[in-house]
Amino acid sequence: MNQTIWVGAVAYDPKVVGIWEGMRRYFVEEAGLPVEVVLFQSYEAQVAALLASPGDRLPRIDIGWNTNLAYIQADAWSDHRCRPIAMRDTDVGWMTKIVAVTGGPVASLADLKTRTLALGSRDSGHAAILPVHFLQRDELVEGKDYQTLRFNTDLGKHGDTGASESEVVRAVLDGRADAGAIGSPFWNAVRNERLVPEGALTEIWTSPSYNHCMFTARPDLDPSLEQRFAKALFGMSYDNPTHRPVLEAEGLRQWIAPQLEAYSELREASAQQGFLTRPLA
C-alpha cells in the first residue's frame, strides 16, 4: 500500500486553494503519488507541523512549501536535518528595490540619512529583513541613521500577500515616507501593470540577489518518498496544456533542484534580527 505524503502550504490568498487542488490532482491522477494537502494560516504553524514529533499534539506534515524564511527556520530548528527538495525557477535571483518619488530629495542611499524608509511586514525577507540587513552593511543603521515606517499587515504570511508592499508604495507616494523597500517581483508588477502613474517612482538602490521559496522535507521522511515527490515535480511541463495553468498560477515555468548558496544572506540577517530564536512549545 502506498504511503500518503502530507504536504503543507500557507493559504495567503484564496487562489491557493485552486493551486493546490490542481497540484494534488496531478500528483494523484498523473504521477500516481498519494498526496494530501493541509493549508495553514501562517508559516509558523506550518514549520511547527513539519518539525512535530509523532507524540506532539500538533498536525504533522511530511513536506512544507516554505518561504525562504520558513525554510531557514526549519533548517535551523531541525539542526540542519530538514532537507530541501525543490524550488521554482522564479525563486532564483530575487532582489530588494528601494524606490523613491522621482525628482524628490532621495536619489541615492546616502540621501536616506535622517529620513524615513517604509518597510513591509517585519517577517518579510524581501521587504523588511534583508533591506535592513543590507543597509546596515552599508553603514546605514535603522534608528540611528534613518527612521522606519513599518507596515505589519500580513504577519505570518512572510510578505506573500503583497499587502504590506502596497502600503509601502502608498506611503512613498503620499509623503509619509521618503523611500520604500519592496521585492523585485512587486516592483516589476508596479511598472508592468501601471499600478502607479508612469514615472512617479524611481528605483534608487538594488540589493544583491537571493532566493525565495523551497519545498522542505521533515527530517525523518523516508528518502524514497522524498525522491518520488521530487521526480513528480520535475515531471511537470509548461508545454503540457494540463500542467500549464497550475504552473502559471504558482508563478513558474519549471521546478528546479535546490540552489542553496543564495540563502546565506537571509540566514545571517534572520539570526541577527532574532528570527531564528525558536518559539516555546
Results as ranks from 00 to 15, higher is better:
Met1Asn: 12
Asp13Ile: 08
Asp13Trp: 14
Pro14Leu: 12
Val17Arg: 15
Gly18Trp: 07
Phe27Val: 00
Val35Arg: 05
Ser42Tyr: 04
Gln46Asn: 12
Ala49Glu: 00
Leu51Lys: 12
Thr67Ala: 01
Asn68Gln: 15
Asn68Gly: 15
Ser78Val: 08
Ser78Asp: 01
Thr90Cys: 07
Asp91Leu: 02
Gly93Met: 09
Trp94Phe: 14
Met95His: 11
Met95Leu: 06
Met95Lys: 13
Pro105Val: 11
Asp111Gln: 01
Arg115Thr: 00
Gly120Phe: 11
Leu130Gln: 01
Phe134Asp: 01
Glu139His: 00
Leu149Tyr: 11
Leu149Thr: 03
Arg150Lys: 13
Phe151Tyr: 14
Phe151Ser: 09
Asn152Ser: 01
Thr153Cys: 00
Gly156Leu: 01
Gly159Glu: 04
Val172Phe: 11
Asp174Ala: 08
Gly175Pro: 01
Ala179Met: 01
Gly180Met: 13
Gly183Trp: 13
Asn192Tyr: 11
Asn192Gln: 13
Glu193Ala: 09
Glu198Ser: 04
Ser209Val: 06
Phe215Cys: 00
Ser224Gly: 00
Ala230Tyr: 02
Tyr238Arg: 15
Asp239Ile: 04
His243Phe: 11
Arg244Ala: 09
Glu250Val: 06
Ala257Ser: 10
Gln259His: 10
Gln259Glu: 14
Glu261Gln: 15
Glu261His: 10
Arg267Phe: 10
Arg267Asn: 14
Arg267Tyr: 14
Ser270Trp: 03
Ala271Trp: 06
Thr277Ser: 13
